[in-house]
Write a protein that binds this DNA or RNA. Structure first.
Lengths: 213, 213
DNA sequence: CGAGCGATTGAAAAGACTCAACCACCGTGG
DNA sequence: CCACGGTGGTTGAGTCTTTTCAATCGCTCG
């Protein structure tokens, strides 16, 4: 659990930030913030993976995004002054830094580079989500699985995909059983290889094809 | 087609903006901007309705949002410096004002109220889209139709909903035929009344129920 | 008044979900 | 070291929703 006093600053996708922060370790499945709670600051992922998700009316999770090292999470609700509409939970051992709301908003006001970076980031995500919505609405589960795998290839940085079947299903937006059946198809088609829960990509070109990219 | 010289300023959801603009009329189905083109500024809807949509791989439209008077559209891509990822088209006779990129970005830099309003707006929309994604992924078409109607009640400001069946289907994310069948169900259940293409809401409480709110 | 497009209906097929059972791996405690 | 229990993963069967395709209807605009 470190603490910085403006020396050097915290490292993010938007460059190093010059402010106070504190870091701590999160265990797998540990909650970063809950849907409905009020934001007290932003979180920057130092190391690890964090799923951002929402619960549907029947309690089923829908994973909206998986954030990796360098990404900041939890700042959107801070701007709206409303409680979190999504939750965040560590998918593996992670190290995450916290920056207080005041500090962050102050820096936003005085640092145009950070500010523009944030605006750009928000805009990019909006475009991504329009894409996501269109996929959800129009594609078959098979196609969505391929699409999701492309995202995960990036998230896991070309390492094997390592998620529970349930998380994977909740990202694709389907039932766990359906997901498993499709994974089997992919396996039989030589697109992936599976070792217990780890998924190795063998034919990315084919995945691109199926995803319709 | 008016032209303003800083007198009074243009009126938006974020308050009046003090800058140069030019307005013009758009006919039904007229394009405001196309997916893939480069943003040259922002559009503010003076009067009318504009659908924001995206085409899926098979060319089917997915409506992401319907913007009404007072809303600004087309500024997200401006921040990312990438081409539009969505398209905008007038759903009815509309009057829309245009503000050049330079002017707008300059004002953003010097006007913290506008800037914070934009950031807040972007954040709100992100939350909305997380909701949208979850609905698409987890709800039945019937539930999604109810959810969509709630949005449209607001868009049409409690006037009857006046959209083509196809647009409605493309907003709900379903086939036109399925949508029509569900409208029939709603009609038989006394939830709505239909006059050619116009839909009158008769039992909003029930719609809320079905949407699961 | 006719053409044409949007709206509607029907029937069949496909896709996905649910439920129930079973399996396999993992860590625990005896 | 092994049996045990539990969780997560997998399979099968049946059902339901939704889509697709084809055909018909009926406004509305020239």
């Amino acid at each position: 659990m470190g603490n910085g006093d403006l020396k050097g600053g915290i490292i993010t996708n938007l460059g190093p930030l010059d402010l106070n922060w504190s870091c701590r370790a999160y265990k797998k499945h540990q909650v970063v913030f809950l849907e409905g709670s009020f934001p007290r600051g932003v979180y920057c992922i130092n190391q690890g993976l964090v799923k951002i998700y929402k619960r549907g009316d029947e309690g089923k999770e829908q994973i909206i995004h998986i954030a990796k090292a360098g990404e900041m999470v939890g700042f959107r609700a801070m701007f709206t002054e409303e409680p979190y509409k999504v939750a965040a939970e560590a998918l593996e051992e992670s190290n995450i830094c916290f920056i207080g709301k005041e500090d962050f908003l102050n820096l936003m006001d005085t640092n145009p580079v950070l500010r523009n970076g944030i605006i750009k980031e928000l805009s990019k995500e909006l475009a991504d989500r329009a894409d996501f919505i269109t996929n959800m609405a129009q594609k078959s589960v098979r196609e969505r699985l391929a699409f999701t795998m492309l995202i995960l290839i990036d998230v896991f940085d070309n390492e094997p995909i390592n998620l529970s079947r349930e998380d994977l299903a909740n990202f694709v937006g389907t039932a766990t059983e359906t997901l498993i059946r499709l994974l089997k198809d992919f396996k039989e088609e030589g697109i992936i290889e599976v070792q217990t829960r780890k998924i190795f990509i063998r034919d990315k070109k084919r995945i691109l094809q199926i995803a319709g990219k």
